[in-house]
Computed example of a mutant assay.
Amino acid sequence: MRRFLLKLASRYLAARNMIAVRRTPLNEVTALIEHLAPVSFGKELIRLGPDRDGGYLVPDVLDGIATCYSPGVGSVSGFESDCADRGMDVYMADASVEKPAVSNDLFHFSDKFIGAASNEAHMTLDEWVDLTRPDSEGDLILQIDVEGAEYEVFLSVSERLLKRFRIIVVEFHGLDQLFNLPFFELGSRVFDKILQTHTCVHNHPNNYSGSTRLDDIVIPKTTELTFLRNDYVKEAAPVTDFPHQLDCDNSTKHPLHLPKCWYLFSQ
């Protein structure tokens, strides 16, 4: 009977051009989620950007950050504009658009994708920073929304550059695939790398994409994570109240709040 059911399942997947994958042990998924649990650290979060898509919560520790890097240029540039209003030079990169949505004297645009390779259409994050601010020192802020390419960006970034980002804001895509072991092995390496130098201080699911559930684990398909470099995290304590008062839905679809399994592990 088991062999028959496996054969039937294989035919079902093949008929729909789907591929059977190995499921990630749920205890490993749970462990990763716990490592990403947001913490409070003695400072407030503020919102940069619009109330809907394109706005993000960041720690109110922006003083001294002179440069923002923002790969992935969308139809709005509210986050970048707010950084420019604080006196930051803002570097933006995206080969899929001709220019940012708005103009600003502090905006600097490159028509390349940021990824893991250096070629005619792509450059690495390290290469981008070296080309644009070759002699600069000091802290940076990174805001990245590159529709799934974030994994290759972080796997290829140097630890030297990663440590220069005081704040990192990332929209992670395809997180429901963490239940698939091949993707989990890739994605968990990305999170492990970031967590060596930074701590998660906020998590806001994008309600446009919805979520996936397996047993007691609910994973938003897309979520916005804010990380703060570890030297700024003092007296960390778990955050147990979501959504944050400054959080806003990304779209007019049904609201999607952070599932409790991401921050209340006793329930």
Rank of each mutant, 00 (worst) to 15 (best):
L5H: 13
L5I: 10
L5Y: 13
S10W: 11
A14V: 07
R16D: 10
M18W: 15
I19T: 15
R23H: 14
T24C: 06
P25C: 07
V29M: 04
I33S: 01
L36R: 08
L36W: 12
A37M: 11
V39P: 03
G54R: 07
Y56H: 12
L57Q: 03
D60R: 11
Y69D: 00
G72H: 06
G74K: 03
A84L: 01
A84M: 02
G87R: 01
D89E: 14
Y91E: 04
Y91Q: 04
D94A: 04
S96I: 09
S96G: 05
P100L: 08
S103T: 11
N104E: 07
S110L: 12
D111M: 15
K112Q: 12
K112P: 01
F113P: 00
S118H: 10
M123E: 05
T124L: 08
D126R: 06
V129F: 03
R133I: 09
S136G: 10
D145I: 01
D145R: 03
V146T: 10
E147A: 04
E150M: 01
L155D: 13
E159L: 04
K163C: 09
K163N: 08
R166S: 09
I168K: 01
E171V: 10
G174L: 02
D176Y: 13
L178Y: 04
F183R: 04
F184A: 00
S188P: 02
R189H: 12
V190G: 02
H204F: 05
N207V: 03
Y208Q: 09
S209T: 07
G210E: 01
R213M: 06
L214E: 07
V218M: 11
T222Q: 15
T222H: 10
E224C: 05
L225I: 11
L225Y: 09
L225D: 02
T226R: 05
H244A: 08
D247W: 14
D247T: 07
C248P: 07
K253R: 13
K253N: 15
C261A: 06
C261H: 06
W262K: 00
Y263V: 08
